[in-house]
Design a binder for these strands. Structure first.
Length: 271
DNA sequence: CTACATGTTCAAGA
DNA sequence: TTCTTGAACATGTA
């Protein structure tokens, strides 16, 4: 799940559950999930409380009252689950933050692609990883600048976190569908009006997804995400995943940049 | 058993 | 340097 809207939903969940409680213990099932060694992590965090969060793209940062900054990345399937220690630990909660209150925050890592570790600061992390401005923050000018200099195809470039942060595979398809741009159009052939529409589509898709707490089933029915075979859509009919909302043609499936890609061959034309 | 998956990173070759 | 492709990571699900 974790693209920008999911991570924003996790961030709000983290803020609502896990602030201002001193950390009592930290359990880590697999040290490969850590980007800071376990000893340093526990020495730093035990006894401290989280006091705030920040999100940039798919990256979540949590700040402690001791001045530490914890970075969390959810990989492909990460999640958070807050629960009382008297209950059984959630499935795949491979890292557990135990608070003195008796409650725990589980970092759910089904596939072990998730990562947690201390960073010096948000700014230094972003710089080191070359993370571009967040999809909800980036200006039209900055987005245009980052895209115009590239000759690669638009879809893989949108997935590149140094172009704009937070866009993953389904959002890239949704944004391009809303903007009526073919996923294989080269970036440097986009017109100014396409950049404008693209910028608006990014905001629209991200804001809509966040409003629905990234619950795909309730996205507007003109979203192409319903073509993906995920979950049940309330708008679905038996062959929902094949029809474009334009009603004229079936959604095409292909591979672009090595990733599964859904688009409408009528609405999204190459120039 | 096989194929595929929402992400990132690295290697190799064009 | 830039871009593309493919593999790797580890596991769950269809």
């Amino acid at each position: 799940m974790p693209e920008l809207p999911e991570v924003e939903t996790y961030r709000r969940y983290f803020e609502a559950t896990s602030l201002h409680q001193p950390l009592d213990f930290l359990e880590v099932e697999d040290h490969k999930l850590l980007t800071t060694d376990y000893a340093t992590l526990t020495e730093t965090l035990i006894g401290q409380a989280f006091v705030g969060t920040e999100r940039v793209g798919k990256n979540l940062f949590a700040f402690t009252d001791g001045g530490a900054t914890l970075h969390l990345h959810f990989g492909m399937t990460g999640d958070l689950e807050y629960y009382h220690s008297s209950l059984t630990r959630p499935r795949h909660a491979r890292i557990v933050f135990g608070f003195r209150s008796g409650f725990c925050l589980g970092f759910i890592c089904p596939r072990k692609f998730e990562r947690i570790g201390l960073v010096e600061s948000v700014a230094s992390y972003l710089q080191k990883k070359k993370i571009a401005p967040d999809g909800l923050q980036i200006s039209l000018v900055q987005l245009t600048k980052n895209l115009q200099k590239r000759k690669a195809l638009i879809k893989p470039t949108l997935l590149d976190q140094s172009t704009v942060a937070g866009i993953g595979n389904w959002i890239a398809d949704e944004v391009l569908f809303q903007a009526k741009i073919h996923p294989e159009q080269p970036c440097n052939t986009l017109t100014d009006s396409q950049f404008l529409v693209l910028h608006q589509a990014i905001r629209h898709v991200l804001q809509t997804a966040i409003e629905h707490e990234a619950n795909y089933d309730f996205f507007p029915k003109d979203f192409i995400i319903h073509a993906r075979e995920w979950g049940e859509s309330p708008y679905s009919v038996p062959d929902r995943h094949l029809d474009c909302p334009c009603g004229k043609v079936r959604i095409a499936q292909s591979r672009v940049g090595g990733r599964a890609t859904y688009f409408c061959p009528m609405c999204q034309l190459l120039p």
